[in-house]
Computed example of a mutant assay.
Amino acid sequence: MKSFEKLLSENKAWAREKKAHDPEFFAQLAKTQKPEFLWIGCSDSRVPAEIIVNAQPGEMFIHRNIANQMISTDFNCLSVLQYAVTVLKVKHIIVCGHYGCGGIKAALGRQSSQLVLTNKWLMHIKDVYRLNRAEIDALPTEEARVNRLVELNIQEQVQTLAHTSIIQQAWHEENRPTLHGWVYGLDDGLLKPLVTLYPDTEIDPIFKYDYHEADMALPAMKFVSSRR
C-alpha cells in the first residue's frame, strides 16, 4: 500500500469508528460550526493543533503558517481572523509556537539564496531578533537563543493581533475575544502560557483604531457577514 493510500484507508476506518460510537456525529457536524477558539499555529507537522489539546472536530477554527506569524499585510491570515471574529464569534484566539522551531532557527541565520520567498516571510522574525538582539545573543547556547526567540515571536504576534482593527472593534463592541500566546514543548508535549491580553487591555495609543471610522465601515462588514 502506498503512503497516500494508507491515508485514505485510515480515513475510512476513522469515519466508521465515529459513526459506530455516535451515528449522528457527521449529521450534526455538517449543520454548522460554532468554535470557541481560533488557533494560529506553526505549520510544523509535529504540532497538530486538535491532537495536542484533545479537541474534537468543530471545536477550533485553525490557521497555520511557518513560525505562527500574524502579519498585518497577510490577507490570508487576516481573512481567517475576520471570519473567526466577525462571523463565528470566537471567544479566544491562541497563537501557539513551539520550541525548536525550524523557521525561527532559519531567521537567526543568513538569508538563503535558494529560499527567496521564505526569506521574505522570515524577515518579520528577523526584526523581532533585531529588537531583542542583546538579550538573545547573551544566551549561552544556540538552543537557548532559538527558544527565547520562539517565545518573543509569539508575544509579538499576540501584540500584532491586538493592533488590528478587527480585534479592536470586537473588543470595543462585544468585549471579546481574549488573546493568548502559548508555546509547545516537542520534548514533553506540554503547552506553556506566555501572555494573555484581555479585551480591556490598554495598548499603545499609536496603534489604537479610530472608532468613528469603524462605525462608518460597520454596515458594509455586516452586509458581508449576512451573505455567508
Rank of each mutant, 00 (worst) to 15 (best):
N65C: 11
T141A: 05
F207V: 04
C96R: 05
Q169E: 15
G103S: 11
V95R: 07
A13H: 11
E50W: 01
L115K: 11
F26G: 03
L108V: 10
L7G: 00
S45P: 06
T73N: 14
K208D: 07
E24N: 11
F207Y: 15
Q33W: 08
N132M: 05
K18I: 02
R176N: 10
Y211G: 00
L186H: 09
S45Q: 08
L191D: 01
V87M: 09
E213Q: 14
F207P: 01
A134Q: 15
K126Y: 01
P193K: 12
H180S: 02
G102K: 02
Q114C: 03
A49H: 02
Q114I: 04
R64S: 01
L122R: 00
K34N: 12
G103Y: 03
T201F: 07
A84C: 09
S112K: 05
T164L: 10
G109V: 10
K12T: 05
V128M: 02
E173L: 14
K91N: 13
K222A: 08
S9W: 11
A107V: 08
A30P: 00
Q155S: 06
A20H: 06
T118A: 13
A138L: 02
H212I: 12
S9G: 15
K34S: 13
G100F: 08
L218I: 04
A214M: 05
Y83C: 10
I93K: 07
A84E: 08
L7I: 14
E156I: 00
L88S: 04
P219G: 06
N132A: 05
S226T: 09
L108P: 02
L7V: 14
T160A: 15
I93M: 11
A170H: 03
H124Q: 12
V95F: 08
